[in-house]
Design a protein around this nucleic acid. Sequence first.
DNA 1: CGGCTGGGCCAC
DNA 2: AAACGTGGCCCAGCCG
Length: 799
Amino acid sequence: MGVNMNIGEAIMRSKGNWPSDDRELIINIQKDEVDEEEAARLKAIDDKMAAKNYQPTTREIWFIGWTNHNGTKKNGIFQSKSTSAPDKARLQEVYEAIQHGEIPVGVDNMQKFTKAHAMRLYKVLKEKRKHAIIKNIIENMPDNYHLITDFKAFSTFLGMVRQEEEFAIDTETTGLDYFNDEIVGLSFTLPTFDYHCYIPVRHTEGKQLLPEYVFSKLKPILENPDQKKIFFNAKFDVHMLIREDIWCQNVWFDGYVAMKLLSDLEDSYSLKNLATKFGKHFGFEDRSIPYEELFGNGGFQDAQFITSDGRRGIAVYYTCKDTALTYAFYKYFVMKQFERLPKLKKLYFDIERPITEVSVEMEQNGFRIDMEFAATYGRKLTHQIDRLERVLTEVFNGININSNQQLSEELFDRLKLDKHFPDKWKRSVDAKTLKKLSQYHRGVKLLLKYRELSKLYNTYVLPMPEKTVNGYLHGQFLQVQTATGRFASKGPNLQNLPQIARKLIISSPGMVIMGADYSQIEPRVLAHFTQDESMIGAYVAGRDLYIELAMKVFNLEEKYCLDKAYDPTKTFQPRKAIKAVLLGIMYGMGSQSLAGNLGMTNEEAVKIIDDFYKAFPKIRSWMDERILFAEKNEYIETMFGRKRRFIGFKATAKRYHAVTKKVMDILGHLPDFIWHEDYKYLVPYDIKREYWDMSKEYTFTTRRVINTIIQGSAADIMKLAMVETAKICREKDYKMIATIHDEVLFEVPEDISEAAVNELVQAMLSVVSLRTPMKCDVAFQHRWSEEISQEEWFKGVAA
DNA sequence: CGGCTGGGCCAC
DNA sequence: AAACGTGGCCCAGCCG
């Protein structure tokens, strides 16, 4: 039966239809037909077995399989079920290449043609094609792509580059670590001469000019402030040049940064991909750019710049193409877009262009690490962590306490600690939940301690000293990484060090760390945008904003609204509550979260938010207006014209408003929670579902719209402040070492005068003129986080 | 083994 | 059946 069925299936499949009833199969296939077919097959096998040197056919090898003289059945290569999808595609390529005669079969005996052999052939094929591409490129290389390996060619190049007002430059290196890797060559594009060149200096093979010589000649050109340098991802090249003691001046343009401003939602910002997508707009159409796959995994120092017969090698093509592209992208694409979008042009040239150089300076400066202290602290931590780990492994039956999955199973399945919760579905093992659970199990409190210490050690105390270069920790500052325009930091992130880890950072000899932070910059920006007189009034009078807001919202006397004071009924702290409300409004917080934060009921939180908007109606109307703008235009912009797009928001809003109207028509109001029992039979499921989904999507976007304007405008102001204070730093040999969103950290001489401090502060305060005054607080510290106020500092200095 | 994801957690 | 915006790093676990 089984045999008949299988053959029947095979036949029906090959006919392209499929019987609905199994009986059809049995009826359609006659038993003797099957036997005949099977007998023929067996005879064929016998014949093949007779010949040990039987050569399986292409069809047998790839598609249907064959049997060798031992009787072992070999599957066709395409029959193997274990082949992954990408491997299948590779095998297909190999099959076709052999059919077309592109590559030979590569075996003298076809019995040896296995799947493994086919996969080896794939590599052969790739290599062959690569060589074909390279050969083609070398034969067709443009005449204006030049290779410079001798004095004469180099001096010709120098003569020309000195005449250029602007030129594109790119460096090739041994790697991406700009404190340890090295430049192996440089490429230039000189637009007026229509000249592109590559200068190898540290390639492993081939005659080259000495790096010291090349860099000594390039130094005055790259440091000449009158010549504009055009880059793609400038920060990297500028760092690499600093390794050669070249401090690039007039970093005029960075295609990567500019593109981020022009379009914030691209899938890729690599030059290659941007050229593929937009190349037709600046004369790079129909040119395939094979790029890095040509060079494999080896460093660029191994790439061939001259062929065995003396021609320009593939490295020349690759590098010259890169700067040619960099220049064309700048001149014929981005600058054209900037003419169309003058606000973005201004944002680029006023803020983002100069801030690139500031980022390089911060990254070069770095944080000085107290290595001794870090080592001692690390030993202390490992000791405690080891001890806790031993106890916890014992208490929790040998599970891996770092695994939340295992921990969750231990706490909730075996120890059944969730019985203490009314809401049993919550199986989270986050700190908030564990804190609540700690009273029911002695291990949980220890676990929290273990988490705290291991986080501190593994994320900060252990890696920070390891990442130092000559005692300094250099993170990266990314100027266009965030959706709002804030800086991001990585490798390590210097913007999220906990207070305790900040103690590892100390000032350089003779210097002191000076932090300057904008006081309440986001609420001030909000007051500015909304033009709400009450908010502005509080700032103008220099009063405590939160006291003012609390008095107004709760209609209370000042004494109830002071810091830590309670309202007359002694149920809550008005100042604290209003601070949470204000921050919450900027983040789009809902009443439930606010209630949770303030330890009050949802109803009370709803009332506070309601009262807040009633007291400051301009805030609500401004928010509504901005959201409407975003719905209509699908983008929003910050104070300095930085755009964030919300593609699809128009459609989302339309659907949201439509379903909202339906729900309103049914209920006469909008529910907080559509799945509540009360609406079970009143609202049809489809409408509930739509309302639920659309609310989530719509409110999520509205929160981002509002927050982007406020956070992004504060970020614009901060970046401008950094540009201005960096100028002072360069003049006076101060160092800027970091920005932490609303704060800048400097290293200044210990004997800095109060007037000099005020000059920095003044620079920060005067970059923008808002309807609200700005405020900037200063603190000094020899060990970061151990703050001395400006007043105390100068009292100490005077004494 | 490297890349990716999700949970958790640090900062503003 | 959810709830607060912007980030990056560590760990476990999964996938190819």
